[in-house]
Amino acid sequence: METGNELIRVENVTREYNNGQVKALNGCNFVVHQGEVVAIIGASGSGKSTLLRCLNMLETPTSGHIYFHGVDLADPKVDLNLHRRKMGMVFQHFNLFPHKTVMQNITLAPVFLKLKTKEEAQARAEQLLKRIGLADKANEYPNMLSGGQKKRIAIVRALAMEPEVMLFDEPTSALDPEMVGEVLDLMRDLAKAGMTMAVVTHEMGFAREVANRVIFMADGAPLEEGTPDQIFNHPQSTRLQDFLAKVL
């Protein structure tokens, strides 16, 4: 797939905890282009989720820069709320609002932020729900849904903001195995439709098949980066070779 302009640029991002005793991220640099699907893989504790959460500043980097459309989100003067609207995020544990119906979950933010009228937001939500085959669940509460359904609703909730990039934090790891397929199918559709995506994942099959580029993280920084073919078929570093030997 042809990729466009640079959308996100990560520069020397570090994240420390406990006054520097723990270094979760240790000088990360990479770029996400428009229309690109970037898969971030690596062992547990390698910092991939922390890195993803830094992209929309849910996690504040200790140092470094995160440019989104050339604006440094790590600059305290930047209005993060405006930029977060354009960065959809899907969490490992769904984080649907349990006191709101599916419809309210999807329309809450666009309506409150006056990006759409209530009618427009509902029409858009219905359209998205139809696309994922859950139109009949619009008035249900999240606790009535299966894990796979919740995850797909969470994706739709983020899509309803019409984001320019979608961030996925281990989208399949909290799911029962039989539900992984339906979520990956939806993500595959999104990728085909040209959505820019950054996906932290343990699904090597998905990374290999859908991603344009794969980043392998180790010790809090990208260690190796390339096309799925380069990463999975011709790994250079022994760390990546060891990792692949374990997970494939």
């Binding site: 929309n56 849910l58 709320n81 405006l82 977060r84 609207r85 960065m87 959809g88 995020m89 969490f91 544990h93 984080n95 649907l96 609002f97 809450l108 933010a109 409150f112 932020l113 969470a154 909730r157 983020a158 903001m161």
Partner: peptide, 18 residues
């Protein structure tokens, strides 16, 4: 209330008080 609820709301662009 799970911190994930706040994170989900903030990730949708809602400011802290809303």
């Amino acid at each position: 209330v799970d911190i994930g609820q706040t994170e989900a709301a903030r990730s949708l662009g809602l400011p802290a008080w809303p």
